[in-house]
Design a protein around this nucleic acid. Structure first.
Lengths: 330, 330
DNA sequence: TCCAGAAACTTGAACGATCCAATCCTGCCT
DNA sequence: AGGCAGGATTGGATCGTTCAAGTTTCTGGA
């Protein structure tokens, strides 16, 4: 069995001191090139890897970032997090960080988990997903000076902290304009109850696009909690109205599926556009607004590492544009 | 700002030595009850949390387990991993372990990652998903004596290591018997090319169920790589055969979706059953075989922690039964 | 009362890296 | 030749915990 390779082993092998090896790793510019190469060779030969625990104990930094993994609710939106997580892990690895998972059922438990992770694992930073109005988590983290980035805007004060988000309004706007260009005038909205940042944002894109085209959006919107069955109910209500819409823009693919179902059972042709470009949308040919999740994850890591390297600097938030994936429902 | 609370702070506060505090945490039975309570009080009062880095440096154990996160291929099967991951994180947390993510594009890179994770983070163990014949990863880990559990059988030698799996053959068998009970006789199989452990297992369940019912499975099976389009092509081929099947059991929901598509365009009614009970299946009403992923994850954690606590003991593998979720395609 | 033996608790050392301060070169100038 | 500045290198201390070994306290039987 190979005995443990420590910084001392490398130092002995390269005929230098431990400190020089450490400098090669952490401050290569202060070591003579010739020495640096000799040490690097020894590192490669011996397969040395810095022990993170020891490093962490001295420096207080763990090179670990944490993300919450949510239970798959109806399962459709789960894939969004899945793709985001993959991108995050990949980019973080490239930047020399590892990704730690945790779960939490509510904001308070999540805060308790922060406390635990910071206290016992010395986590470097957090990536939060799905922020909302008056989110207690960001307040807690900010008060303690813990580095974090959110995927989702701070809906109350855009300058409150560092964030990355996808421009939902731009996405629903593009979807609406696509339908207008196809000749539709009465374009309905299927969304979530007012009050959620994400939902209100997506809805505004639809409304403004209609207004810009001179169409009055009054009476064309319906709201419900997310879900296929829920979507079907309100879509049916909308399609049964006196002047029913000929097309629907939806806040999620789940709602869009419900809308398709409603149109089918009502025997009415209606164009439908969903949001998130989930696998379900791809499978059944649903036109949907696609979020650049890989990009978003990469930008989150970029921002977080920037904050970690230079805590003081204020960083500009990132707003990414989604794209419309055309399939055969619109 | 509160200064750091270490084991020494607690010791001073409770008027005992550091070691006694350590004992209260790691071996409470050797400490007098009265002392234990006094120390525990001090811990609670001060909000002390053991520093994992320091602990790890001394013990060589990190209380960290690693799982690979895969890119969502066609996106449909991604949700399977997603649900598994959630269950794993949750159960691991309860057992005092945290979950670390990593990515890898092929087996060799994955092994390099093991090396890195073990060397720099002192990982306690790994949970592998999706094993196959002659998997180099398990051989590498076993050779080094690294604790690991796989979600998926060792297809070459069932006693090779510790595993948890879902009985695919039982699932497809149940699906086939359900179709037989509904009056179908010619029940086809849509699966993956022979050679993959999972695929061959699922196929055998269909074949044996047919044989048991006195039906000759010859000519009723088609194989292709996973995907909706691929499934549609081979399903069409099967449905255009001289004596076409009236029902199809599929190795995945993707293939099942393809089969539904083929049946629709061919204008032929055919019952279809998929595998994995993905959100897509739920959305479109596809009857599918459901894997108990939460259970599987929990059993993985159970086995892994058992191995970690008592390295020598050989543990019995776990084979879980899937269930058939009936919807309207069969 | 005394002592053996167990139980309870304390002390010093070690894990592997980094930080700090002191020392050693090396080339250059007077 | 001597001295000096500057960077390269060195040894020792340190982070917070657990292990190993040592010391004190308690218990019970002769």
């Amino acid at each position: 069995m190979a005995e443990k390779v420590t910084i001392a082993t490398v130092a002995r092998h390269a005929q230098v001191s431990r400190q020089t090896v450490s400098n090669v790793l952490n401050a290569p510019h202060i070591v003579r090139e010739e020495t640096r190469q000799r040490v690097q060779e020894a590192i490669d030969t011996l397969g040395y890897r810095a022990n993170q625990a020891a490093r962490q104990m001295r420096t207080g930094r763990s090179r670990l970032i944490a993300v919450r993994i949510e239970p798959t609710r109806d399962g459709i939106n789960g894939s969004v997090l899945d793709r985001f997580l993959h991108g995050l892990t990949e980019t973080a690895e490239a930047a020399g960080y590892r990704t730690l998972l945790y779960t939490a059922t509510d904001a308070q438990r999540e805060i308790d988990t922060y406390d635990d992770l910071l206290g016992s694992y010395d986590l470097d930073g957090f990536v939060l997903t799905g922020t909302d109005h008056g989110d207690p988590r960001t307040a807690w983290l900010a008060a303690r000076g813990v580095p974090f980035v959110t995927f989702g805007r701070p809906w109350d004060d855009l300058g409150a902290y560092c964030w990355v988000d996808v421009d939902g309004a731009a996405g629903t706007g593009e979807a609406t304009r696509h339908l207008l260009a196809a000749g539709h005038r009465r374009i309905g909205w299927l969304g979530w109850p007012a009050g959620s940042g994400v939902g209100d944002d997506r809805r505004s894109g639809w409304r403004e696009a209609l207004r810009a085209a001179g169409v009055d959006p009054a009476g064309l919107a319906r709201e419900t909690v997310d879900g296929i069955a829920e979507g079907e109910v309100v879509a049916r209500d909308l399609l049964d109205a006196p002047h029913p819409p000929t097309a629907l823009v939806c806040a999620s693919d789940s709602l869009a599926l419900g809308a398709l179902q409603a149109a089918r059972t009502a025997g009415r042709a209606a164009s439908v556009i969903g949001f998130d470009d989930t696998p379900v949308a791809a499978a059944i040919g649903l036109t949907s607004v696609s979020q650049p999740l890989g990009d978003a994850a990469a930008r989150c890591v970029d921002l977080l590492t920037a904050v970690l390297d230079e805590p003081r600097r204020a960083l500009a938030p990132v707003l990414l544009a989604p794209s419309l994936v055309l399939r055969h429902t619109a």
